[in-house]
Design a protein around this nucleic acid. Sequence first.
DNA 1: ATAGGGATTCTC
DNA 2: AGAATCCCTATT
Length: 230
Amino acid sequence: VGALPSLRDPPTAGEIWPALHRSFYERPVTELAAALLGTTLLSEDDDGLTGGAIVEAEAYGGPEDRASHARAGLTRRTAPMFGPAGHAYVYLIYGLHSCVNVVGEGDATPGAVLIRALEPRIGLDLIRARRGAAAGPDARLCAGPARLCQALGVTRALDGHDLTAGARLWISGGAPDAVASSRMRPSEILTGPRIGVSYAEGDWAARPWRFGVRGSASLSRPFPREPQSA
DNA sequence: ATAGGGATTCTC
DNA sequence: AGAATCCCTATT
């Protein structure tokens, strides 16, 4: 028995859940945020495979976006936002919590999408163990940008990671044998102002760049009334 | 060098 | 309502 894989080797997680291609990410961040709804974020490490369906995401632009980390321009911290699409931007907030973004646009245009909530679907036992005993019902385990990172074992070690490689941390449109596309119908998409960016000047705090799946029990918090379909 | 604050979460 | 807690960013 050699080191080369044989046809009888069990499929890897990346084969069961094929990674989205780079071209999926190369578009304006508001489009990308909506398109990510319904796709599956996956993480695999020595402890196992975990994942869930993305049900909430926020778009962040370049220096012109006064709510974006990129507002100060290219710095060491925000460098991934200025790099190629399809990579992760993972940052530490309040000295405690990791949050994960998906880089969009292109090399010339900085921008990223913050993943704010998942419906947990894969590796529930491991997700529950990582989140702790007081984490509440399953639907709330990944209801928040820092919660989902804790649940999936995402830390800044993954900052800059290439999401298109289909290993360690990646996003899939669905299993190959899945019948339905991950794409949401417009009537299923909620929009609203981004969370926690009241410091932003001008109308940047009010822009409806938060996107969510209508009716999901895993949203980080409710959307304001008067929802508009994207 | 140092001060001010943050795309959050949990507990009191 | 307040703490936890690190590092980024801007200023001295």
